[in-house]
Amino acid sequence: MDIRQLKYFVAVANERNFTRASEVLHIAQPPLSRQIQLLEEELGVQLILRNSRPLRLTEAGRVFYEQALQIINRLDQLKTATRQIGLQQRETVSIGFVPSTLYGGLPMLVRKLRQHYPDVDIQPVELTSTQQIGALKSGRIDVGFGRIRGNDSTVARTVLREERLVLAIPPDSPLAANAGHISLSELNGQKLIVYPKEPRPSFADHVLSFLNDQDIRPSEIHEVREIQTALGLVAAEYGLCLIPSSARLRSDLHYRLIDDPRITSPVILSHRLNDNAWYIAAIKQLVSDMYAKNPPWLDVEHNVLPGTGLPPSKKAAKEKKAQKKAP
């Protein structure tokens, strides 16, 4: 077994297809299939179920995939760290993020980090919430901004805010006739588009759990890989989609806030447990400073800060009122 075989297996597991994996790796399919077969023979177990479309991993394959990914990431980290030390390069902080956080405060945070710490190389890395856990454990990233609550005991999580969900609606839909709040029950019997398709669990499962909790049954659920595709299908009148309120990307759609304030998507800061690196405290302080200024993306109606039960501007108003009353 060598690192090349691990990379081959990870590519096949990611693509769920030998042909696509061979294209990604820039090798022919027969030698790729042969290397995976040799790997299975060496391990003495089957890693991939080849008779399914797309390909699926066996239970042993899933375990092997997670471990292989960590080994590859650790090797990349080792190469990068060694080069930085050898070339006396500046310190690097890698930040994992899910794409929807780009429509909220993450760009501002990255700008502020670069302004406050110009000698540090800030590197954003796009990863799903689930992938961020493995990336933190392997050292590929230093902190992550995701949306799915996990239960890994080696990762510390801080909920920065709860962002309410809105329903994206094509403009000619009867549901677009009203600009007010809308009940989640309106999704009964409707076509629903969810994302991302994989890996799971994901934001798609987060949305589907809300529907299951309220016994809401869409007529059809269509899974896609990313939010841009989902909103494009809404614009094509293929269905409806629940998204975080900050991700209202398309101006040709109608958006209505879900009337239940419990229907939210958290923005979660994650890092390795017991990691006391300077950048963790720095990031938390910068986030707190940003929230205190009530930027446009932290709009009044669509966000709630943890522990307050209040949207940001109402929290600030309450604090200001309390200060006036103080002797």
Rank of each mutant, 00 (worst) to 15 (best):
164 R>P: 09
24 V>S: 07
146 G>D: 03
116 H>K: 11
134 G>A: 08
51 N>S: 13
159 V>Q: 07
237 E>S: 08
106 L>I: 10
42 E>K: 09
305 L>A: 03
86 G>D: 11
129 S>V: 00
183 S>R: 01
147 R>S: 14
245 S>W: 03
252 D>I: 12
86 G>C: 08
320 K>V: 14
28 A>H: 15
37 Q>A: 03
97 F>G: 04
117 Y>N: 09
177 A>S: 13
101 T>V: 08
188 N>K: 03
111 R>C: 08
262 R>Q: 15
250 R>L: 14
312 P>W: 06
7 K>P: 05
128 T>M: 00
8 Y>R: 01
236 A>F: 01
68 A>V: 14
127 L>R: 01
126 E>Q: 11
12 V>H: 02
325 K>N: 14
260 D>A: 00
20 R>N: 11
54 P>A: 14
292 A>N: 08
258 I>K: 04
203 F>A: 04
290 M>K: 06
226 E>C: 04
7 K>L: 09
302 H>T: 07
160 L>C: 08
221 I>F: 04
36 I>T: 06
84 Q>C: 06
145 F>P: 00
53 R>C: 04
251 S>W: 11
113 L>D: 06
40 E>R: 00
313 S>Y: 11
194 V>M: 01
141 I>A: 02
104 G>N: 15
156 A>L: 12
123 Q>D: 08
304 V>Q: 12
35 Q>F: 00
255 Y>N: 01
71 I>R: 07
27 I>G: 05
269 L>F: 07
67 Q>K: 15
36 I>Q: 02
86 G>V: 10
243 I>C: 00
53 R>S: 14
126 E>R: 09
170 P>Q: 13
128 T>A: 02
39 L>F: 05
226 E>L: 05
253 L>Y: 06
256 R>Q: 11
178 N>S: 15
141 I>C: 00
49 L>N: 12
113 L>H: 05
80 T>P: 01
15 E>I: 02
234 V>Y: 03
3 I>F: 08
30 P>H: 07
288 S>R: 14
299 D>P: 04
327 P>M: 04
30 P>G: 06
9 F>I: 03
284 K>V: 13
45 V>R: 04
246 S>G: 03
293 K>E: 10
226 E>G: 02
208 L>W: 10
284 K>Q: 15
197 K>A: 15
